[in-house]
């Protein structure tokens, strides 16, 4: 077991290996083919289908999740590389009866149409507002949300939703009134 890579790799090399993922605060012990990306582990092995596959190449952001409070494209990393770190998906954010403020704002400002890129947009927005330097301007929001493509063109609503949540956090009283 010291050097498990020793030996001639062959077609049996796709044997599953133990992988432990901590998703939305819960630990999951899995046996996975090392080829399984974090995205496919979430979707196909853990049932977190809220995280979407749009391109599988890091070019659309639909698969954005938080790993150790940072937003990443989960399609370009292997599940086996993401053990021992907290992973948060859209399912860990809020439920229909207990929405996260950003989820509420996306509904109020209609920050989506088809909804397919929405989980990724919201995870990016959460990272932007809660784990990164808050954006100072709409231009900055737009630039820093540009890793999340939306073909329906919901960008104006997305920017509005993020701006409103940011402003409400800065000024809670006014935020509640609005």
């Amino acid at each position: 077991m010291d050097n498990p890579e020793i030996g001639q790799p062959d077609e049996t090399a796709d044997v599953a290996v133990p992988v432990t993922l901590t998703v939305n605060g819960r630990r999951h012990d899995l046996m996975l083919d090392p080829r399984v990306t974090l995205l496919d582990a979430l979707r196909n092995y853990l049932g977190f289908t809220g995280t979407k596959k749009g391109c599988d190449q890091g070019q659309c952001g639909a698969c954005t999740v938080l790993v150790a409070d940072r937003r990443i494209d989960s399609c370009l990393t292997l599940a086996v590389m993401n053990q021992d770190v907290p992973i948060v998906t859209i399912e860990g954010l809020g439920a229909p009866e207990s929405l996260h403020p950003i989820q509420k704002a996306f509904i109020e400002h209609d920050g989506f149409q088809c909804g397919y890129c929405t989980s990724g947009q919201i995870m990016s927005a959460v990272a932007l507002l809660e784990h990164e330097k808050p954006p100072a301007s709409d231009t900055e929001i737009r630039e820093r949300m540009s890793g999340n493509l939306c073909r329906c063109g919901a960008y104006p609503g997305i920017v509005e939703a993020i701006r409103c949540v940011r402003d409400a956090a800065r000024n809670p009283v006014a935020g509640e009134a609005a």
């Binding site: 952001g61 937003r71 990443i72 494209d73 990393t77 990016s124 990272a127 890793g147």
Partner: peptide, 9 residues
């Protein structure tokens, strides 16, 4: 370059 997500990775 790229996007915030990719730069984080």
């Amino acid at each position: 370059g790229a996007s915030t997500q990719l730069r984080n990775m």
